[in-house]
Amino acid sequence: MNRVRRGSASAAPYPKNMTATAISAEGLAKHFGEVAAVESVTFSVLRGEVFGLLGPNGAGKTTTINMLTGLARPDAGTIRIAGLDCTARPRAAQHLIGVVPDDNNLYPELTGFDNLRFCAALYGMRKAERQGRARELLDAFGLAEAAGGKFGGYSRGMKRKLTLAAGIIHQPEILFLDEPTTGLDVASARQIRQLLADLHRAGTTIFLTTHYLEEAERLCDRIAFLVAGRIVRTDTVENLLQLVRGRYVVQVTCTRTPPSLAEKLTAAFPDFGFDTAKPGLIRVEATGPVHVGPLVRFLEEAGAEVVEAVRLRPSLEDVFVQITGIEAEAMRKEKERVRSGE
């Protein structure tokens, strides 16, 4: 993917009294009837930072983004974007922000090129400028050949890329992304992650929600875990990973596993924790080094055919499970299920 510039020529400048804080939310709350979608949410995002909001489906991530971007009014709390008070005037910072929603909500009847030109016009860009910027982004996203095709006929990956391009058409200082890579193939997701890394290097403040923990680990400087509308932890990725640094995880792959294996393993190795929920995989967790020799011998004597045993680096997924008690895999499957409309 070609690099995308975020030039300063037409970028909307921060207000002169802008502090180092790009986004500040304090005590945010939002209720839908009796249901508290978001409760007492407080965090701040520094200028130029990539901040991730992670949580399961229905945790309140989209509601939080909607409040920050002016699409929803908080019931309580304050919001400041680039130093501007957006609590009473939710649309005060619209000229400074770009938003990539979780839906690809461009206009199906318009071509890719016309969609980008139209989005540029919404930010008051002049004709020559918006045409140049639209062409630049179509090139950067590898969509130049599809520029004349209608958006409604694009593949899901192409739609997602064009939606992202529309979000940055006006070179915003602060970019909000709601699940930017959900439902994309590996190559497209990688392209988008590369683009976000480029924007980060160019100084754009990025606020993203995702349920892909490895994506958040790779992209974010800081992360907040949101569960049932409340933030349960906010920290840098490095500090979060420290929580699981003292843990040892080994994954054993087997082509055949005998019944009641978990009970037998627990009885034989009482200091280890075993997870045999996935067929063919045994996850072993311990607070000290795991010697795989005795473990493999035990498994083979029990009738398992061991293919490999590897030590896994502790990941953000482990941190997430430890802090929230929610299995990341279950969260991912639930999200995919919701998106596919099952």
Binding site: P101, D103, N105
Partner: peptide, 10 residues
């Protein structure tokens, strides 16, 4: 949801 684009415009 394309109307949201308009609501997000300055």
């Amino acid at each position: 949801r394309s109307f949201e684009r308009l609501l997000l415009a300055p």
